[in-house]
């Protein structure tokens, strides 16, 4: 009963924390956009003319650097800003879909690589070590380029931007996932697997029903980390031309010439995505741990 109460007492705290983060984002945006109205296209032109025409700059009070920012290019209050924002935000889908697919593949591959890593047989363990050491030492950017420009030459298949990105991200991340899984599995006391074997389960059944469910609960924070990391690293796929968030920002800067404003929005986009992922993982963690220690009646 008291634990039920605790759950309720904790809830507002979680909400508060989320609200706090949301408020921070909004504050940053408002701080940035505050110049939007003042610096509408017309008045901005005047400023430029003034500065140019005024030969005696020192007589005038110094202008704040912020006043030179042209937030209207990404302001939701101007027509141009709205069009630009829509263009930027439309990359979310590519970024997210690519990251999620890469995550699913890399978790699956990582698990397959982790299992020989805990085997008794030395050759199996070595295969795990070789894979992990090689794959995690390949920098992601060259790997993306290699997959997109290099792989078609030997494999005879040309990935499009999207699948080249997914493939490179998944491959690169799988080594990290493998190590996370290995650590998680090894953290489960050996008696658990032994008990599984003594009630007649096979090795794989023991893994599936006894060891992995417990290991996954423990490695959930690390998996959440990898997911956030993956979303951020997916920005590198912009170099081969996929119109995800970063690529779109770069393209917009080419036409608007405003790096700070657009990159700020870009960073906020990643911030929002990763905040949502973070809360999702925390929610999952709570749900699983509640399941683990059911409330005592």
């Amino acid at each position: 009963m008291t634990q039920v109460m605790n759950q309720f007492q904790k809830m507002p705290y979680v909400l508060l924390r989320m609200l706090g983060l949301a408020a921070l984002v909004v504050a940053l945006l408002l701080f940035g956009l505050s110049g939007a109205e003042a610096n509408d296209p017309g008045s901005n032109l005047e400023v430029v003319v003034e500065v140019v025409s005024d030969s005696d700059a020192e007589a005038k009070p110094k202008k704040s650097r912020f006043e030179n920012l042209k937030w209207y290019v990404v302001s939701p209050f101007t027509e141009q800003g709205r069009t630009n924002l829509k263009f930027l935000i439309d990359g979310t889908w590519s970024t997210l879909l690519m990251s999620v697919l890469a995550l699913i593949i890399s978790i699956f591959v990582g698990l397959l690589i982790a299992i020989p890593g805990i085997a008794k047989s030395k050759p199996l363990r070595s295969s795990n070590v070789v894979y992990v050491e090689i794959v995690r030492s390949i920098p992601l950017l060259p790997l993306i380029l290699w997959v997109y420009y290099g792989l078609p030459e030997i494999a005879g298949i040309q990935f499009d931007y999207f699948w080249a990105g997914v493939f490179a991200l998944a491959l690169s991340d799988s080594a990290f996932e493998a190590e996370i899984f290995r650590a998680g599995i090894q953290s489960i006391p050996r008696g658990q697997a032994e008990a599984g074997r003594t009630v007649g389960l096979t090795y794989f059944q023991t893994m599936r029903y006894v060891v992995l469910p417990q290991a996954v609960r423990r490695i959930l924070p690390a998996l959440g980390n990898q997911f956030a990391y993956m979303v951020k690293m997916s920005a590198l796929v912009s170099v081969i031309g996929l119109q995800e968030l970063t690529r779109r920002a770069n393209e917009l800067i080419v036409t608007e010439y405003r790096a700070l404003e657009i990159y700020t929005v870009l960073i906020l986009e990643y911030l929002v995505i990763i905040l949502i992922i973070g809360q999702g993982v925390r929610w999952l963690e709570r749900k699983l741990s509640e399941e683990n220690e059911v409330v005592r009646k």
């Binding site: 006391p189 008696g191 658990q192 032994e194 008990a195 599984g196 074997r197 003594t198 007649g200 006894v210 469910p213 417990q214 609960r217 399941e291 683990n292």
Partner: peptide, 16 residues
């Protein structure tokens, strides 16, 4: 193993 049951010092129940 099908014929032999085992009870451990640390119980080794499946906590999940």
């Amino acid at each position: 193993r099908n014929e032999v049951g085992m009870v451990f010092q640390q119980f080794n129940l499946f906590p999940h």
